[in-house]
Simulated assay, not measured.
Amino acid sequence: MEIKEIMNQVADFFNQHVAPLHKITSVEMNDQEDQEGWKVIAEVIEEKEYMKKYAKDEMLGTYEVLLNNEKEVISFTRRDVRYRSAIGQEM
């Protein structure tokens, strides 16, 4: 299944290069003419050890991830940071 492959690619990329993936909230085809591929919205737990040390709520970063037609991550951008207990808002 193609979506499952895309989700696995994003999870592997984030776990290796950014931070442990919390969850993927959106997978859709990228409909921009100049950039064919996939757009994924993912949530990552930011600075987990720092937050534990100071007894603060964990922070979640929301990232927009773009993949090409070969299902390779070609870019990612953090769009939002919020406390895990805060109600999230979709972009």
Rank of each mutant, 00 (worst) to 15 (best):
I3R: 14
N69F: 06
K23S: 12
E33S: 12
D80T: 10
P20H: 04
G88Y: 08
D31G: 07
Q35K: 11
E64L: 02
D80M: 13
V81I: 13
N30I: 05
L67A: 04
A19C: 02
I74V: 15
K39G: 02
T62L: 14
R78A: 12
L21E: 02
V73K: 07
R82I: 11
Q16H: 03
A55E: 03
M51I: 05
E5S: 04
F76C: 09
S26L: 15
V27L: 08
A55D: 02
R78S: 06
S85F: 12
V73G: 09
M29W: 09
D31M: 07
E47T: 04
E2N: 15
R82V: 11
E33K: 10
N69S: 11
T62G: 07
Y83Q: 14
G88K: 10
K71N: 06
I3Y: 12
N30Q: 08
E33Q: 14
E46H: 04
K52M: 04
E90N: 12
M7E: 00
E64S: 05
V44R: 03
E58R: 09
A55T: 01
K39H: 04
V73N: 11
Y54E: 06
R78G: 07
E5Q: 05
L21P: 01
E33R: 12
S85Y: 13
L67M: 04
N30C: 06
I41C: 01
H22Y: 15
P20Y: 06
E90T: 13
Y50N: 00
V73M: 10
V10F: 00
P20E: 08
A86W: 11
E47F: 01
M7A: 01
Q9L: 04
I87H: 05
K48P: 02
R84Q: 13
V10G: 03
E43K: 13
E28K: 15
I24Q: 04
D12T: 00
K56L: 15
G61E: 03
Q16R: 05
F76V: 08
E90L: 14
A19F: 00
V65F: 02
M29N: 13
A42D: 02
T77V: 15
H22L: 11
T25K: 09
V10R: 01
L66A: 07
V27R: 07
F76A: 06
Q32C: 03
E72H: 13
S85A: 11
Y54F: 09
E70Q: 09
I3L: 14
V65R: 01
A42K: 02
D12W: 00
R79W: 08
N15A: 03
S85C: 10
